[in-house]
Design a protein around this nucleic acid. Structure first.
Lengths: 142, 142
DNA sequence: GTAGGTGCAAATCTTTTGCCGAGCG
DNA sequence: CGCTCGGCAAAAGATTTGCACCTAC
């Protein structure tokens, strides 16, 4: 799937949710789509200003809140810092965080998902969602 | 293990880390020890003022930062809200969060721990720590 | 006695909101 | 044209910090 298609995807999703497609939203959608890191709002604002120097920080906040509410992006709060965002379609995974460098690595593993399902069910609940953050150090550092 | 002993435990740990034992710290240690919920700073401050009406909010912040740095308490940032604290000795577990009521249920499960270990090792890392937050709804709500 | 702790107020950081003019549909 | 959106500035919420005084060790 190309980036252009993904971007079309996010715009289509906005339309489907009744969100208007303004220049700012298209720009933010593109930035989120092409991001491989997990940028926070300030970083997204910085990147957005390259193309649109007049875009306001509050617009970035409002847009990401809308996109999150619509289930198009998801946010993470690693170690209590500012919220960091990524496309929901990229996010059926969890995060490995190198505590020495702060680098974030994505991973996906069914064992974790299955274990979580079983635990919740045993306690009388159904899983809506989960967040797993694994803090690690490189093996050779030991 | 009685609460008094646990409280002695936390004071001993403070001494071991070179943290001075002031009245405020003893009080906060006791509050954290006897808490069964996961109070945030404001709530701890509220509870502390019952015994010591002059205790400052910043003291609670500073104390919890020290205790966290010393590994005596751990903090959690559920859905980006204010940090909520609990004794590290109580915290070898993860959290189930009822998205309807906000209630937090603790659980502990070796399957998750083992799965996480395997994943990290496969990617060339060693696990230092992890945070798992499972958002759920009661089964009968479906 | 001194290094570290406390209270208070102000600063900082992150996020939200009120207002009003502008643009999508 | 109506309803939503965006920019700006101010507010709100969470946390940290500077400073002067105080206290555990």
């Amino acid at each position: 799937v190309s980036e252009a298609q993904l971007n079309n995807g996010i715009e289509a999703q906005c339309r489907a949710r009744g969100l208007r497609l303004t220049g700012q939203r298209r720009l933010i959608a593109q930035l989120i789509t092409e991001a491989t890191d997990h940028p926070d709002i300030l970083e997204l604002h910085r990147r957005a200003r390259v193309s649109d120097p007049r875009i306001a920080l509050s617009t970035v906040y409002r847009t990401l809140n809308k996109l999150e509410g619509a289930g198009i992006v998801v946010s993470h709060n690693f170690r209590g810092g500012p919220s960091r965002y990524e496309l929901a379609s990229k996010s059926c995974h969890d995060h490995l965080i190198d505590v020495q460098t702060g680098a974030v690595l994505d991973f996906q593993d069914r064992r974790v998902d299955r274990a979580i399902e079983k635990i919740a069910r045993a306690l009388g609940f159904e899983v809506v969602d989960h967040r797993l953050e694994v803090h690690v150090i490189p093996s050779r550092a030991l």
